[in-house]
Every structure is written in C-alpha cells, then in structure tokens.
Amino acid sequence: MNLQLGVLEEMILIILLMKDETYGVDIAKEYESQLNQSISLPAIHVVLKRLEKKDLVTSKMGEPTAERGGRRKRIYQATNKGYQAARYLQQKRSEMWKGIPAMNFSFL
C-alpha cells in the first residue's frame, strides 16, 4: 500500500474511525478535546474533500437541524480502505519506532 497522508489528514481519518458517523463541527470538537489545539472549519472541510477524493471516506447529506439555521449537514464515514490505510500507517510506525535505540538518560 502506497499512500501519502498528511498529519492532519491522518488525525481526521482516525477521528472518523473512532466516531463511525460524524460531520465537520463534531470533528472540530473532537480534535480540540483530543489534541488541545484549535482548528478552523475550512481546514477540516478541505481535508475531508481530499480524503473523499482518495476514497478513504464517503459522505451523504443528513437531515436539517435548527441550530444550523435549517441547513443540512454532510455526514462522513470512513471506508474500509480508510481503515486499512490508517492501520497500515500505524503498523509501519510501530515497526519503525522499535528501531530507535533506547535513550540513555544517565547523564541527567
């Protein structure tokens, strides 16, 4: 598997895998609570569009709600391919991590 994923792309993909079904604002909230770092919605939208183009997520339109001013939300879901990609990256990373020699903190 040869997939180039940016850090933000990977993070959002993982959030999607955690949540089963979710949408932009939800992702932003999750991101902020997990990483303690704020993120702008346009950034998430761009990443979601990119992931969708790579077939890692799919989307459908949801029902309109009042707090959205009667607008519908687009609901995203990770695909199987998305799951594979995230897992592949995670595995590769663990393998590589093992190659890092244990740090020697004796000089402290």
């Binding site: 919605l41 346009p42 959205r68 001013g69 607008r71 939300k73």
Partner: peptide, 9 residues
C-alpha cells in the same frame, strides 16, 4: 449547506 451549516453550528 455543509459549509455554512457547520460554521453556524
């Protein structure tokens, strides 16, 4: 719908 809805929420 998606963008403005998300921004409003």
């Amino acid at each position: 719908d998606e963008i403005l809805g998300d921004l409003h929420e």
